[in-house]
């Protein structure tokens, strides 16, 4: 249990997917201009991450043992189809949810956080539940980073940011500072 908790917290704050592993940077740097958008994007990500973790576990356990060299290909194919299926399913069963999450789902396919999760999970030899904890932690971490960045950007939009730093430069410095701040979580649950 403490192992699962550690995996979750590690992916969420200690080694935050975005701020420490640099996964999911595109939405982090690009899409996250509004808090509501960031929140929905994060939720969509959590959803897909959990499904991906399940699929990756299944693939690893039943298929890739025999053909490890197909790993990258099969992961990317599975993720792409997964997102397609989720998109169709959501559209069919919950048009409301689709309106809120729909536009983010295609963006997620090529979000490296998803493939990253599958590959990290494989490299670390996580089992089913460990993988799920990892996926939830990673998704929460992504969401946290997205929401923080979005709310900060809403504020800096109203600030007198110099032309030279306005845009990507400032966003990266903010990300760096966030990353510095998250270093405070280092060693969480390890000292006890």
């Amino acid at each position: 249990m403490s192992d699962l908790l550690w995996i979750l917290l590690s992916a969420m704050v200690v080694n935050n997917f975005t701020l420490s592993l640099f996964l999911g940077l595109c939405p982090f740097l690009g899409v996250s201009g509004r808090v509501e958008t960031a929140l929905r994007m994060g939720l969509a990500n959590i959803f897909v991450l959990v499904l991906t973790s399940l699929c990756a576990w299944a693939l690893n356990t039943f298929v890739l043992v025999y053909a490890p060299f197909l790993r990258v290909i099969s992961f990317i194919v599975v993720i792409a189809s997964l997102v397609q299926i989720v998109e169709m399913a959501v559209k069919k069963f919950s048009p409301t949810l689709f309106r809120q999450l729909g536009i983010y789902l295609p963006l997620i396919t090529t979000n490296c956080a998803i493939l990253g999760l599958a590959i990290f999970q494989t490299n670390r030899g996580y089992g089913l539940f460990q993988g799920l904890a990892f996926a939830v932690g990673a998704g929460l971490g992504l969401t946290l980073a997205l929401v923080l960045m979005a709310s900060i950007r809403e504020t800096t939009e109203l600030s007198d940011v110099p032309d030279v730093t306005r845009g990507a430069g400032l966003v990266l410095i903010v990300a760096g500072t966030l990353s510095l701040a998250f270093m405070g979580f280092a060693g969480l649950l390890s000292g006890a």
Partner: peptide
């Protein structure tokens, strides 16, 4: 629970972000 002896600086920075 963390690995550091002191956390005030990080606590404030994290809350600044919020």
């Amino acid at each position: 629970w963390g690995g550091l002896a002191e956390g005030v600086m990080y606590a404030i920075l994290l809350m600044n972000a919020l």
